[in-house]
């Protein structure tokens, strides 16, 4: 993990990881806008409200969960760093493990992923 991440929960790394969930969110926002602009079926208070709330509620729930989990994971990373423990999935339970690999290949790999 970047050393400048101390004290900052949503550093660059974390934000880049969260991009993956921004895409479905973007798609939902796109449709919200599209359906607001293009409305071939007319409006009706009840059905239009349901129409937009399905997208808005699902999108909002996604936003909240992404925020909460991003925060939890990022804080947990700082904690591991402090304890000098490994970030890898394989580490942990057994003493037998030899942590020969570099600490966080995941995050560095992940950043190369094209956002599209």
């Amino acid at each position: 993990m970047a050393s400048d991440s101390e004290g900052k929960t949503f550093d660059r790394e974390t934000l880049l990881d969260l991009v993956v969930n921004a895409i479905p969110l973007g798609i939902i926002l796109f449709f919200i806008l599209a359906f607001a602009l293009i409305n071939p079926f007319g409006s009706n208070p009840v059905n239009t409200a349901i129409q937009f709330s399905i997208m808005a509620v699902t999108g909002a729930a996604l936003l909240v969960l992404t925020y909460v989990s991003g925060k939890a994971i990022s804080e947990a990373e700082d904690e591991l760093e402090e304890k000098g423990l490994e970030l890898s999935e394989e580490a942990g339970a057994g003493e037998v493990a030899e942590p020969e690999s570099e600490p966080t290949p995941e995050t560095t790999d992940g950043d190369d992923e094209p956002a599209a």
Binding site: D17, P24, T58, A61, T66, E106, G110
Partner: peptide
Amino acid sequence: RKLFGFKFVVYSTLAIGVLSFG
């Protein structure tokens, strides 16, 4: 090799979980 983009997989798992209710 380690799983590529481990955290992408974690976050997208959570995203699927939420979106599947909509």
